[in-house]
Design a protein around this nucleic acid. Structure first.
Lengths: 221, 221
DNA sequence: GACCCCCGCGCCCCGGCGGGGGAGAGGTGG
DNA sequence: CCACCTCTCCCCCGCCGGGGCGCGGGGGTC
């Protein structure tokens, strides 16, 4: 079964190049082209397309907006959008994926990868450029799966240590904490040291993260 | 520069197969093997490895736990973990990525893709199997883009600076951030310096607090 | 062309912080 | 009584992080 592809790009040269590459494949067929977002929407009213290869940077209606509209009005899952851009920026990629794109690649990918991506997207799966995948994971890996429940780790701390941790987690230095709790800075240092050791953390920065993640502190509370 | 690979899998046959495939490449070198998670950790104490190819389903210590420990104790971004499994289930994949894996593939990928993935991961980027990428996007696409109701203070930051701030707020050191984003530590320091200056903060600890309080990061999700 | 911003990278300095070791006072419970 | 824990405080040391300064390159704008 052949995949019907539409190419959306304002540069005729790019369109021609993509068409060349894609039409060389027996299972891919470029059935439409468009020069910007508005044009793409008009063409999609008349032509059945499985995958839209969409440049993000375009005049008049940019690729993100076009992607949003295409995804908004599709009813049977098609067409799916594979977003392309020249620039490896988080903003472009996230905007496109948020708008509903099923894939995101940089324009400098080798032809085979582009073709593979089109097949994957046509199948209903997704492809994201490695540099963007990394950023995705950086941001969301912590939210995957079930949260590891309320930390039993905090129970290991003594009352005093929890108190100190709370202050650490508010951004105070050892000296400031010492002033607040009315003890010498040396004392605070030993407390902080014990906290890090017990919780198996490296520095106070990680302690702050744990304080938030464990619910010891809540943003705005 | 050749990539030093370690193979972790309880089946000797699988290890041998991977070794064959990978060693056929001039830029890849299998420098270690392990039969389970515990074994892998021991071996990593002695051998320098860039990428760990980790089977998820193993006896004694499973791949997820092993991945977690490897990622917990690395300090310069290495070794990175590329998780492999036979079964295309969300649970396996998400568990591995949550544990810190830089990549996730199914064992039935063609050899070229496995090799390409290892190179990508060694570089510091990430690869995720298309079926899982789709699930990732289904789940998180809505949360992409500028954080809703973002603190106006964060608007002063450039994109790069926000990216660095995100990593700072996850407890990473400057060196770790450098490895992650692929720049020299000196560069990270300048970025962090600018972040602190723009946001009028004293140190990275306060930056973490702001990241949580401003909604740039949310505990657990 | 001139200017500015962003990025990447290097150098120096130094102060805070983390790690180790030691040590005394109080309170607990075997 | 002694062991154990907690809180308190001290010294030394090494390192990372933060601040200052400079340099080059790329991309915009005027």
């Amino acid at each position: 079964m052949t995949v019907r592809v539409m190419i959306v790009d304002d540069q005729a040269l790019v369109r021609a190049g993509f068409r060349m590459v894609l039409d060389s494949q027996p299972d891919l067929a470029v059935v439409a082209e468009a020069i910007d977002g508005a044009d793409a929407l008009r063409v999609l009213d008349r032509v059945a397309v499985d995958v839209v290869v969409m440049d993000l940077r375009m005049p008049t209606m940019d690729g993100v907006e076009a992607t949003r509209r295409i995804c908004a009005r599709r009813d049977d899952g098609r067409p799916r959008v594979l977003a392309l851009t020249t620039f490896d920026t988080e903003a472009d990629a996230f905007a496109a994926l948020r708008a509903g794109a099923s894939g995101f690649l940089l324009k400098n990918v080798p032809p085979e990868e582009l073709m593979a991506a089109i097949r994957v997207v046509a199948q209903g799966d997704s492809v994201v450029a490695p540099s963007i995948t990394r950023r995705l994971l950086d941001r969301f890996a912590g939210q995957l799966g079930p949260a590891p429940a309320a930390d039993p780790r905090l129970a290991q701390l003594t009352e005093r240590e929890r108190e100190v941790l709370l202050l650490v987690a508010q951004g105070l230095s050892n000296a400031e904490i010492a002033a607040r709790v009315h003890v010498a800075e040396a004392t605070v240092k030993t407390h902080v040291g014990r906290i890090l050791a017990k919780l198996q953390l490296r520095d106070r920065v990680q302690a702050v993260v744990l304080a938030y993640e464990s619910g010891l502190i809540t943003p705005g509370g």
